[in-house]
């Protein structure tokens, strides 16, 4: 029996919702979850004895963690594999730049300003290094962690342009003619950063990606809240059980040499 923990932020919910289906297919895997809200998760710490504790800021944070996990901490030493989902190497700021700038080496889309590809790559290098600092501060020494980036926003994120400030630039980025090259660079740098720190890396499954930094819209329908309840609206950022199953299967395929039960 392989003891497998999915640790992270609210994005863990998609995988938790897929658990029944996954366990049905992989009876030899003992699947567990531990999640806390992103602001508490990302600055949490793994203690010397191998327990992960989020950085709770309030009574409400603790209440939510208890409600979701029935515990405030999790003993990481009791797991063979740990998949971490909740860190975000966000392309949001790069997308903001492309909303106002053309890339001098790239396509002329009529923007008044240009910036160099080298500058955008430097931004990506910077954001990866910064997030890696956060990750290593949170998780510490390598302890069989595999990192997967928080899901890319849904390709339908543009529908939130009125109420969610980054939506407009993210939508523009996904459809920008020069975005594929930048996205490839970003993926390479994220993978290199994570593996250089001694962690495993699981990219977002390709079948869930439709455009640069975009998750297929179908995966955003009926996405769950961290507490298991269905979100009352589509936020285009959190994904559903179908997406969660893709991630779990991708991880299992890559890291656990599975022998899934025939469907």
């Amino acid at each position: 029996m392989t003891r497998f923990l999915v640790l992270g932020s609210s994005h863990v919910a998609a995988m938790k919702q897929a658990a029944p289906q996954f366990v049905e297919r992989h009876p030899d895997i003992d699947l567990s979850f531990f999640a806390s809200a992103a602001p508490t998760f990302r600055v949490g710490r793994v203690g010397q004895k191998g327990f992960f504790t989020p950085k709770y800021r309030s009574k409400g944070d603790r209440q939510l963690a208890r409600q979701v996990n029935d515990a405030l901490t999790v003993d990481l030493t009791s797991f063979d594999q740990i998949l971490v989902s909740g860190f975000r190497f966000s392309m949001g700021d790069v997308a903001k730049v492309l909303l106002d700038f053309d890339i001098v080496e790239g396509t002329d889309t009529g923007k008044a300003q240009t910036c160099s590809l080298d500058f955008l790559r430097a931004m990506i290098d910077h954001l990866v290094a910064r997030e890696m600092k956060l990750i290593t501060g949170c998780l510490g020494e390598n302890r069989n962690f595999t990192i997967t980036d928080a899901p890319y926003p849904a390709e339908t994120i543009g529908q939130r342009s009125e109420d969610y400030d980054p939506a407009k630039s993210l939508d523009a980025f996904m459809n920008h003619p020069d975005a594929p090259g930048l996205f490839d660079y970003w993926k390479d740098q994220v993978a290199a950063g994570v593996t250089a720190a001694g962690y495993g890396f699981l990219p977002q499954p390709v079948e869930t990606v439709t455009k640069p930094f975009a998750t297929a819209g179908q995966f955003t329908a009926a996405a769950p809240h961290m507490n298991g309840e269905q979100l009352s609206w589509t936020d285009h950022r959190h994904m559903n059980a179908d997406f969660g199953l893709h991630v779990l299967e991708a991880f299992t395929e890559k890291h656990m040499n599975p022998t899934p039960k025939p469907a």
Binding site: D93, V97, L99, Q113, C115, S116
Partner: peptide, 18 residues
């Protein structure tokens, strides 16, 4: 020739080198 408003402040030192 400003960078976009609302861009995270932590990019500033890197952007200044450009």
């Amino acid at each position: 020739e400003p960078l976009p408003a609302g861009m995270a402040a932590h990019f500033r030192p890197m952007a200044q080198t450009y």
